[in-house]
Amino acid sequence: MTYTLLGPDGRGYRSPVKGRWGGHRAARIYGRLDCPSARRAIACGGYVRQRVFFADEATAIAAGFRPCARCCADRYRKWKNGEPWKR
C-alpha cells in the first residue's frame, strides 16, 4: 500500500509510510492526526476533500503550513505572536 504525502514544495508524492501529521490544504494549517478539531470537522462531513498528510512537522512548515490552534496550542501561540516556533 502507498500513501500520498505532501513534500516541502507542497507537491504530492507516493510513500510506503503513512504521514505522521495532517493538514488542511485550503487553510494551510497542520496538526496532529488525532486533533479534536479535525476529527469533529471530518465527523460532520467536511474537511476530507482538503485533507493532506506530511511525513513530519518540518515538512509541513517548509510547505508553508502553520500550526493548529487546538492540537498545537504552544506552537500556535508563538506563531501568532511572531516568536520562533519551528521545531
Rank of each mutant, 00 (worst) to 15 (best):
T2S: 13
T2F: 09
T4H: 10
L5Y: 06
G7Y: 07
P8L: 01
D9P: 06
R11P: 00
G12K: 12
G12T: 14
Y13E: 13
R14H: 11
P16L: 01
V17A: 08
V17N: 08
V17W: 07
G19I: 05
R20V: 05
G22E: 06
G22S: 14
G23S: 11
A27D: 14
A27P: 02
I29D: 02
G31F: 07
L33N: 12
S37W: 06
S37M: 06
R39T: 01
R40P: 00
C44Y: 09
C44N: 14
Y47E: 11
Y47T: 00
Q50A: 05
Q50R: 07
R51L: 15
R51C: 13
V52D: 11
F54L: 07
A55D: 13
D56K: 01
D56P: 04
E57Y: 01
T59P: 02
T59S: 06
I61Q: 08
I61F: 00
A62F: 08
A63E: 12
A63M: 06
F65R: 03
R66T: 14
R70I: 09
C71R: 06
C71L: 09
C72V: 01
C72R: 15
A73N: 12
D74C: 00
Y76E: 12
R77W: 03
K78L: 15
W79S: 03
N81C: 08
N81K: 07
G82D: 11
G82V: 11
E83C: 12
K86S: 13
K86W: 03
